[in-house]
Design a binder for these strands. Structure first.
Lengths: 302, 302
DNA sequence: TCAATAGTGTCTTTAAGACAATATGTG
DNA sequence: CACATATTGTCTTAAAGACACTATTGA
């Protein structure tokens, strides 16, 4: 059974239509990917008995070109015509960290007009989580200076206003990104509008100090997502080395969530997700702790 | 204190750089938004005593042009140079449904090469939830035929393979979109690769029947997200009319989750999210049920 | 010895699951 | 009155929070 070829209103077949299709009829934006690369590293601790406190780090690169010359930006770049968004993200990640097989998740696509003073740029942000012990040193890696920054946030204030349209809650959050040499900061305003049953959330940069583009907003958003997901998924393991103690794992949860957890409950919660080894972490000035590894069968369940 | 203007390696100030910036140096993709507009509608029920069963619906438009001429696609379109992604999404939503103040959430950005036979197209998908009782009839609304389709999915099979790289789990899901006139379907393969602690998930269209582009993949993804989010957020209320009974609310949860819930537990769970009214739904051949409305204070808490 | 963490036991609190029992309008 | 849903009560189960108690090391 032969089928009559489908034609459009101009009488064209699909083949004819595609041959004459003018791809330039719509003005096109540039498309980039921006990478939010997180890791958790140990800080120095003078007291030999105490555990080294951990801190959440994010990778930034110093801009060597206008705009925002000399300021710090998320690593990223243009998506080339023959690679998918995810391929572009993995390529950027590899050039910055020399790692592959890394946790990678698409977060959000930022498409406001005027995000970039050069031209219309739409940017898809990806979050990557890396185990800091697997990281090669960056030294001489590349021309652009990539550095890790300690990331912290702080609640500044919150207001709640009743308007005819509903209730508007505004929260100001301060980000602080610090380094041996640099201290960056930004203030983000989160606006939640409740009108009837519809809730809308927006974020806005109130002030930024040496953080390029709208990247402070992206960082704040990613931090929020990381916090959310660590509670109901197993992404924390992507931040851990092959072997870790339950105390270290708990520290990672604590530094991301920004609060202390009860050890007993934490151990119950992760019990099925990890496998015991017969190795111990010793020479720590206190009872040695058992090393564990991730239990892949936990993920294969169901 | 005056500051020396920053210059790049070519000695240009930011102003000079931007004036000479060549926006065409990178090949640019087209950018579109695609809308996943969901609602829940009543089906007809012959038995006067029984509640009318509800079904989940999604809005599709029939393509009047190549490619995929005559097939059904998600409503959407190109993002114009002077609107943000969200503005484009709201514009598309309004032209299709004549509604604004609707729940709208960015879902995912699809950027595979070859998604669209015309040219490189990157598409950001947005999920919108509408209350079907507020919907105007579509008749004569627009030239393109927009129609609601009942959406159902079914698990076909699942395989689990151990490879040197880790464990690969493949699941086949069938989508079925039906209408008085049309019956569309698609099979999606979900692949989950567990290598060490890294889990990666991809989806692939195995077969589609009259669903344009890669939209079947988008629909399956959105359905998964809708299911996930209805459990831990309050998006279900965006699908409800102003007044509803707890039984109706439960039906909405049930049709989205695809399983029955226990009424007692359900009522406990939503108790703080709703406000009693003094009105009753009567004439139903059984005990009348109280009408409730959404409790905005629930969202304002914390 | 003791500071500091590792690891366990158990009681309490809270949420969810299961299901029985009671309530009530309409044909 | 019987049907079908509405609504509440209560017992069970599971998870989380709180906290005390024991274990073990290195300087």
């Amino acid at each position: 059974m032969t089928q009559k070829p489908l034609v459009n209103k101009q009488g064209q077949t699909e083949e004819q239509y595609l041959r004459t299709y003018d791809a330039s009829q719509f003005e096109r934006p540039s498309v980039t990917v921006d990478m939010l690369v997180f890791t958790v590293m140990d800080e120095v601790e003078e007291n030999y008995r105490k555990l080294s406190p951990k801190s959440l780090k994010i990778l930034l690169v110093k801009r060597g070109e206008h705009p925002y010359l000399g300021q710090w930006a998320l690593p990223g770049g243009f998506v080339s015509p023959h690679e998918s968004l995810e391929e572009a993200a993995m390529r950027e990640l590899f050039t910055e960290t020399n790692l592959d097989n890394i946790y990678l998740e698409q977060l959000y696509t930022w498409g406001d007009v005027g995000r970039d003073p050069r031209t219309r740029v739409i940017s898809t942000s990806y979050m990557a989580l890396v185990d800091s012990s697997a990281l090669r040193l960056q030294a001489g890696d590349d021309a652009d200076e990539a550095e890790w920054f300690r990331l912290e946030d702080k609640w500044l204030k919150e207001t709640k206003t009743k308007t005819p349209d509903g209730t508007v809650t505004e929260k100001w959050v301060e980000l602080r990104l610090t380094n041996e040499r640099e201290e960056l900061s930004a203030t983000i305003k989160l606006t939640k509008t409740i009108s009837g049953k519809i809730v809308r959330e927006t974020r806005e940069i109130v002030e930024t100090n040496r953080i390029a583009f709208d990247h402070a907003k992206m960082i704040q958003y990613a931090l929020e997502r990381l916090r959310g997901k660590i509670e109901y998924t197993d992404i924390a393991f992507a931040l851990m080395p092959e072997l870790f103690t339950l105390g270290e794992l708990q520290q990672v949860y604590e530094v991301i969530l920004g609060k202390e957890l009860l050890a007993a409950a934490f151990r119950r919660k992760v019990a099925d997700k990890v496998l015991e080894t017969n190795r111990y972490r010793k020479h720590a000035g206190h009872r040695p702790s058992k090393y564990y590894r991730f239990n892949p069968e936990w993920m294969e369940r169901g």
